[in-house]
Structures are given as structure tokens and as C-alpha cells.
Write a protein that binds this DNA or RNA. Structure first.
Lengths: 213, 213, 213, 213
DNA sequence: GATGAATGAGGGTTCATTCAT
DNA sequence: GATGAATGAACCCTCATTCAT
């Protein structure tokens, strides 16, 4: 029994529609090059309507970032906590999931935007560092530590390893949205296969002669 | 040996001075947020003078990118060709050099700018892919291939490995210029130490139990 | 004696409530700087409701002015007609009354608004001249004439004297609402005392040596 | 030998031309109703040119006020100091001069504008009070005091008298610019004659019977 | 009748670009 | 060549007014 009048229904949906439009256009053309009227038009409303929901272009941007980032971060942490098997397998799984849910989706693109506009939105940069970067590092770092304690991993420096786990994902995200897919995944590899190969490589190392030999 | 008059010398140096000013400001504030008058002022000339050398802000940007990117790629290729020792050592050396000469310097920042503005300057994106990305991949890919043929490396997938070599460098570059250094090199590691640790990690792998065991 | 239902009473009171709100805000911030939504909000209704009663912001302003100006002029005329004592005393009384009822109240402020917006509302300016200025002049002029005929006043030029009676009142009104009270009534004088002093001064003149001496 | 290039000559004149245009339009239509482009157009330049000289419409207004007010205040004070004859004659002279130079000219109009916009430009209101109102009061107050000490004037309350001197001038200024001249100077009086009549009235008083009789 | 979501013309301001000097 | 005054298109944002509910 939906009782809301059409008008009301539209109103409730507006913020999300505007954020979606903003996301698409900010990604497409960058923040500065996107006119607020374009955002409105893409959301199917007039210029002024945008300002009923977000008091300025800057606030729209911030809202869009918060909307698209915060959600996915929390989820991943929960999964990791209750896992029991081999850490290397957990890591593989997480990377795969993260790419599927975040990296190739909206959140991934937003990460790029935040990096680009960090200088212009210092508070947003801080928010991103606090809410995204640090939690991610903590999550991955804990995983690696667990692997070392269990004797599964060598006693590698944790922070450096975290970086090495994160950077390929970021790299792919950025390149996909900067130069298009064709330059990132060469040969016949999909992003997923590429990540898989990198994970495997990372686990076993590049050298033919094992360290202990 | 014609020693140009000071006036002449100034004039000859203009283009470079303008490109330097442009680089500094584009990096500092982004392309859109940098006013062409600021560039001129920083180069010590008047607004109009800038337009004598570069017909538009866009052209200035492109010239600046070209100026700062092409140089360093070629150098490294020569070094690699005549190297004789262990490939892993060569790789280490190259990463170290690249970071010192490119990553932490102007060229590194320009890479970030190109990625940011790629959508706005498609021809520049193509130029970047052709002149920077592809040569780099070829260079690194060849190196890895050599290592495999020499029996030094396992038969890893080359392209994936190239990505895994490049991505941490890019990651550091981007973060340094987006969020400041403090988030990138945690603990007491310098960027150089971080790269070193990652290289070592990459070579020997993460697993305690060697693959052959 | 039909006692209207509360709903009905609200509705009947609306126009007055809106005019009151308009008065307060136009005085506080000026016509241009007052948003029609603010007026509605202050009257406790929604934006759209305002337009049910007044078809535009301009019409609202005009209605508000008419509402607040016409009233008090008529009253005074009657009082004056049936007065019997010394004219100077009547004049004193009228000034005092006018200040108490008009000058320091809403009507006074509205005078200021009309002067400010006269150029923008020519018909309103005419209305003000016809309904306020001219009647006032006639009233005061008649009083002075009477004083002269009765031998109470010297044979002064009537119009000039009228101006000299009106101007201090206007001066006080304007300053009170432009710069706050502190600059208008210096020393320890209240507006009432100031008017009293001015009236006395006006009656007896400034010179120590009486004219006939 | 005028050596300045036309371009330069124009540039030097621009600020004044813009201030003049601003004055005319602000008076004509009020501050809010005047578009900055109109000011520019009236000064014969394009919209953007205005902003080369004044960073905002507000600043333009303030500059215009300062330009038109400060000048005339100082002059009058000097004249008064060295006068020797009867104070009443000096006062007459000053009123006449003030009206000729200030009241009916630009400065007079600016006074009206300041009063209108005082709420919107508090710092300007303060400037006006400090630079115009207070000096004027001091000047006139001193004159009256001198007259009293010389035995020329009765021992009237000084502040009240100052108000009574100022208010008719202000009244005329405001009415001239709000409703046009026709309502202010009735009969066949010019503003000058009106002031003269008021001055005379003020000196000798309204009553036929001198106070001492 | 009342509401408030939606509209879009309008105005302040910026800045890439031009061109007379 | 160099300059910087001038330009005006563009863009962000406001708010009087409308109208579906």
C-alpha cells in the first residue's frame, strides 16, 4: 500500500538521483569542468532544484563522496574477522571481493576523485584517510600479522606488504578511468585474472631459487 | 661562441621558465584552478607574454607535459641493455633510479596530472600511453623475460609482473601529492626503504613454505 | 454574534499577520533584501500561502504601506478642529502625540521605507504625498494660520514654518532606524525631551535680543 | 605636453568615471536594484572592467561614498574658525554654503544612500557617523556655544539646537531625491529661500510676544 | 485553501583571451 | 616583442513565482 503522492516519492528519490548524476559527471569530466546545471539536467531537474538539496557544488561533491565511500568499507572488515582457513586464501578472496564490489564500481571511481580533489577539499581528504585508508591498512595489516603468527607467512615487514597489496588495485582503478581498459589489462587477461596472477606472484615470489636454498 | 645579450638570453629562456611555472602551479592547484595570469606572474612576465609563447592554456599544459615526460624514459633503456649481472639486481637499481629521478621529481607529478586530465586531453593521454607507459612496459617486460630465460626468475606471467612492479611506484607518487607524505611511508620508512622492502618481498614471496616444498 | 471557528479566525487574520510580518522585515532588512519566503515564515504560513493573499512581493509592499499610513493622519485633524486654547500649546501637544503614535511606531518606519522605495513605486510615492504629506501640511499650515490670525504668532511664512515643524520629526525617525538611537539623542535627552526643547526653541527663537528691541 | 598614451589616460580616469556612474545609478534605482553591469555600461566599459577597479559591488559602493563625502566636510570647518562677525550671520552663511555645495549636489544624495543602506553596510554607517555627523555636530555646536558666550544667543540647549539646524537641510535633500522637487518647495520658494525663511524663523521665534515681555 | 517542491530568469563574479600602446 | 587594460562568455547561486498535491 504505497500511499505517498508522486510528488513526495520524487522528493525522496531526488538526493540519490542527484548524487548519481554528480558521480557520473564528476568522473566523466572532473569536478571543476562539471557545471552544476549539468548535474541537475542529468538528474532530470532544473538548475535551482539542485540547490534545494545541496547548498553548493562543493557540498554536493562531499555528499557524493561520503555516500559512495562509507558503505563498502565496513562490510569487508566483518568478513575477515570470522575467517578460519589459510590466510593466503582469505587474502585472495578479499582482493577479489574488493575489486568486484568497490574497485570496479562507483566507490573505486570516487577514490580517484578524492585523490584528484584532495588539495581542494582538505577536510574530505582527511575523511578519506581516516575512513578509508586507515581502516583498510588496519584490516590488511592484521591479516598479514595473523599469517605470520600462524607460520603461514615469512616475517615480512607488515606496512610495506600492505602497500604492495593495495597498490595494484589502485593502479587498475586509476588507469581504467583515465585511459580506458585497453591499456591496463594486456594480452587476454581480465582485471580479475590480472589480480589473481599478481596475488600468486606475490605469494610465491619472483625468484626461481627459494630463499632457504 | 656568440654570447647572447642578457635580453636575448632572457627571451631564449622564456619557454622553459613558463613551463616550469606551469608545472609548479598545475601540480599545486590543478589545471582548472590555476589561472594563466598566475603562471605568467610566476615566470616573471606579464599575462600577455604567456600567449606569445603558447596560444592557449591548453597548449601550455600539453607543452609542459611533453617537456617533462619524454626525457627520462629513454635513458633507462640504454643502461638496461648493457647490464651483465643478476637481473634482480638490475631491477632493484632501476626502481631506485626511477624513483630518484622521476617518481619524486617533476615527471612523477606530471604523471599524476596526466591521469587527472586524461579525459580532458585525449591526445595527451594517447601521447602518455605511447611515450611513457608502453616503453616502460617494454623495458620492464624485456628485463623480466631475460630473467626468466637466464633461469633467474620463475616462469611468471610477464605483463602481470610488470604491473606489480609499476603500481607501488605510482601509488607512492599519487599519495605524496594528494595527502602529503605522512600517510604513505608509515613507521620510520622512507620512500626509498619502502620500495626496497617491497622489491625484496616481491622477489622472495610472502609464503614461508617455498613452492617446491 | 457569530463566533467563527478557530480555522476561520486564522484565515481572517492572515492578511494582517502577513502585513505585520512584511512590515517588520522590510524595516529590518529593506525591501530588496527581504525574501518573500521570510515574510511567509514570520507570519507562520508557507511560501505559497502568501501569494494567495498578495499576488506579488510588490503588491504586498504596497498593501503594507497603505495599511500603516492612512490611519493616523485623520485622527489628528479632528482633535485640532475643536481645540480652543493657545495654538502653541496645541502644536506642542500634536507633536508629542504624533511622535508617540506615529513617529516611533510602525507608521514612522513606513515613512522611511516609502522614501527609500519611492523611485521604485511611483504610484506609492504619489499616494504617500497625497495621503500623508499634503494632509499633514494642510493640518499644520491651518494651525499656524490660526495662530497668526489670533495674534499669537508673528506673520511668518506658513509653508516654511510647516517644514520646520516636520523636519525634526523626520530626522529623528530616520536616524533611529538607520544608525540606532545612540546618535540621535545626545546628552541625556529622550526623543520626547528633544522635541520639547526644539519646540520651545522654535517658539521663542534663538536670539537673545527680541526683534522689537 | 601631455605624454600619456590614450590608453593610460583612460585608465587613470576610470575609477572616477565608475564612481560617477555608480553614484548616478545608486541614487536613481537604489543599491540592490542597480546591476553592476549597468554601472559599467554607464561608465562606458564592459562588465568585467568594473571588477578590475573595485573587487565587488559592495566595495564600489563604499568607495563611492567615501569619494563623495569626505571632501566637503573638511572645507566647511575651516571657514567657520576664522569668522569674526555676528554668529547668526555666520550660521546663515554656512547653511547657504552647505546647501549649495553639499546638499543639492552629489554629497547630499550620498547622505541619503548611506541612511538607506546603513543596515547593510555597518562599517560605512560608522564611518558616516564618525566622519560626517559628529564633525558637523561639533562644528555647529561650537558655533552656537560661541554665540551664547558672546551674548548673541539665549542660553539654549546646544544639542537640541544643532538638530534643529540640521534637520531641515536633511529633509529637503531626502524629499528632493525621493519625490522630486515639486513637493518640497511650495509656493514660489526656492530651496535657498526656504532655508533662509527657516533660518530667520529660527532666530526670531514663532511667538509674537517676545519672551521677556 | 494550504503547501512546499520545482522552476528558471537574473545577477555577481571570474578569467581566458585579445589588442592597442 | 612585451605589456596589461579591456573584454565578455561562462558559471555559480538566489529567489520570486507557479502549480501539482
Amino acid at each position: 500500500m504505497t500511499t505517498a503522492a508522486p510528488r513526495q516519492r520524487r522528493k525522496d528519490a531526488r538526493p540519490q538521483e542527484l548524487l548519481d548524476a554528480a558521480l557520473a559527471l564528476f568522473v566523466e569530466k572532473g569536478f571543476a569542468a562539471t557545471r552544476s546545471e549539468e548535474v541537475a539536467a542529468r538528474a532530470g531537474v532544473a538548475k535551482g532544484t539542485l540547490y534545494r538539496y545541496y547548498p553548493s557544488k562543493d557540498e554536493l561533491f562531499k555528499a557524493m563522496v561520503r555516500e559512495n565511500l562509507s558503505v563498502h568499507i565496513v562490510e569487508s572488515a566483518a568478513q575477515a574477522a570470522q575467517y578460519e582457513g589459510a590466510i593466503s586464501e582469505l587474502m585472495r578472496q578479499m582482493m577479489r571481493d574488493w575489486w568486484a564490489k568497490v574497485g570496479r564500481g562507483n566507490a573505486g571511481v570516487v577514490c580517484k576523485l578524492v585523490m584528484i580533489e584532495a588539495r581542494h577539499f582538505p577536510e574530505l581528504a582527511r575523511f578519506y584517510v581516516d575512513e578509508v585508508i586507515q581502516p583498510s591498512k588496519t584490516l590488511l595489516g592484521g591479516m598479514i600479522e595473523r599469517g605470520i603468527r600462524r607460520g603461514e607467512f615469512r616475517a615480512v615487514p607488515i606496512e610495506a606488504t600492505v602497500h604492495l597489496l593495495i597498490s595494484p588495485m589502485l593502479y587498475m582503478m586509476l588507469h581504467e578511468h583515465s585511459f580506458g581498459t585497453h591499456d591496463v589489462c594486456p594480452g587476454d587477461m581480465s582485471p580479475e585474472e590480472l589480480l589473481e596472477a599478481q596475488m600468486s606472484l606475490l605469494l610465491h615470489g619472483l625468484l626461481a631459487t627459494p630463499p632457504g636454498t
